[in-house]
Amino acid sequence: MIDLGISKLALIGVVALIVIGPEKLPRVARTVGALIGKAQRYVADVRAEVNRAIELEELKRMKESVEKTAREVEAQVNDSAAAFEREWSEVTAGLEGTTATAHPALSSIGTPVYPENRRRKKNFRLKRQAVPQWYKARAGVRTRALSGAARVARYRPKTPQR
Rank of each mutant, 00 (worst) to 15 (best):
L9C: 07
A10Y: 04
A10N: 07
A10S: 08
I12P: 00
I12Q: 07
I12H: 06
V14I: 15
V15M: 05
A16C: 11
A16W: 02
L17I: 02
L17W: 06
I18A: 08
I18H: 07
P22R: 03
P22M: 02
P22K: 00
P22Y: 01
K24S: 01
P26I: 00
P26F: 01
P26N: 00
R27W: 15
R27T: 15
R27Q: 15
V28T: 07
V28A: 10
V28R: 04
T31A: 13
V32H: 02
A34L: 11
L35S: 14
I36Y: 14
K38M: 08
Q40S: 09
R41Y: 10
R41C: 06
Y42E: 08
A44T: 08
V46I: 09
V46N: 00
V50C: 03
V50P: 01
V50G: 02
N51L: 08
E55S: 10
E55A: 12
L56N: 05
L56R: 06
E58V: 09
E58G: 05
K60G: 08
R61H: 05
K63R: 12
E64H: 03
E64Y: 03
S65R: 13
S65Y: 04
V66Q: 05
A70L: 13
A70W: 06
E72H: 00
V73P: 01
A75E: 11
S80W: 08
S80L: 13
A81N: 14
A81I: 06
A81Y: 03
A81E: 14
A83R: 14
F84Y: 12
F84L: 11
E85K: 11
E87M: 15
W88Y: 14
W88E: 14
E90A: 09
T92S: 14
E96S: 15
T98V: 12
T99P: 07
T99C: 09
T99F: 12
A100D: 03
T101H: 09
P104C: 01
P104G: 01
A105F: 03
A105S: 09
L106Y: 05
L106F: 12
S107Y: 03
S108G: 12
I109F: 01
G110F: 03
G110K: 09
T111Y: 07
P112Q: 02
P112S: 01
P112E: 01
P115W: 15
P115N: 12
E116I: 06
N117D: 12
R118F: 07
R118A: 10
K121G: 11
K122T: 12
K122E: 09
K122I: 07
N123T: 06
R125P: 03
L126E: 15
K127D: 12
K127E: 10
K127G: 11
R128I: 12
R128H: 11
Q129V: 14
V131D: 02
V131A: 02
W134D: 13
W134E: 14
W134T: 04
Y135P: 11
Y135Q: 15
K136I: 03
K136S: 07
R138K: 15
R138M: 13
G140E: 00
G140V: 00
V141S: 02
R144I: 08
A145W: 07
A145R: 13
S147P: 02
S147N: 01
S147V: 00
G148C: 05
